[in-house]
């Protein structure tokens, strides 16, 4: 297993769109394992392949407090959405920024698991929000795209400045 580098906004590769996974081979499974390790190490609750510079359409999450309930979704697809709520979100690719985002409260998701079995999940609350957040990544979108122009510009400037300072 290996830790992967998490791309940071405004890295343009976060705008790539993921391509569906054809076959779940050893390389894909390795990526999944590495993503779990990376996510746990970074104390995240979800991570999309795009964030570690892979264009495979897959994501991992674990929202349990004990960090013992890993879930991997390959080629996830939201079949239906219901309800609406606005909860604060944060992102491993946009460190230090927490802003409320409007999301569906209930979703029905179809995906493949790590072993290629087809699964359907009804999610609500935090897991539902997390899956929507990660699927956005797979479509090249970030949670700050849901914010007002003013807010997202301010955040971009702030992170660009931090990146420059880190480079100096």
């Amino acid at each position: 297993m290996a830790l992967l580098e998490i791309l940071r906004y405004p890295d343009s590769r976060l705008r790539n769109r993921a391509k569906p996974v054809d076959t779940i081979d050893a390389e894909t499974r390795q990526l999944v394992d590495d993503m779990f390790e990376t996510m746990y190490k970074a104390s995240g609750i979800g991570l999309a392949a795009i964030q570690v510079n892979s264009t495979k359409r897959l994501l991992v999450l674990d929202i349990s407090e004990q960090r013992d309930d890993p879930l991997c979704l390959i080629n996830p697809e939201i079949l239906s959405k219901e309800g609406e709520s606005k909860e604060e979100e944060g992102c491993l690719s946009v460190p230090g920024i927490y802003e409320p985002v409007k999301r569906a409260t209930h979703i029905l998701v179809k995906a493949l698991d790590r072993d290629g079995n087809s699964i359907e999940l009804e999610l609500e609350g935090l897991p539902a929000v997390c899956v929507q957040h990660e699927i956005d990544h797979l479509d090249g979108k970030l949670f700050i795209d849901h914010l007002s122009r003013l807010k997202s510009t301010r955040i971009r400037k702030k992170l660009e400045k931090e990146a420059r300072q880190a480079d100096d």
Binding site: S43, G44, I45, G46, L47, L61, I63, E65, E87, E88, E89, G90, C91, L92, Y98, L126, V129, C130, H133, E134, F143
Partner: peptide, 8 residues
């Protein structure tokens, strides 16, 4: 995604 809510 990062959950700050857990800590709160």
């Amino acid at each position: 995604m990062v959950d700050r809510g857990a800590k709160r």
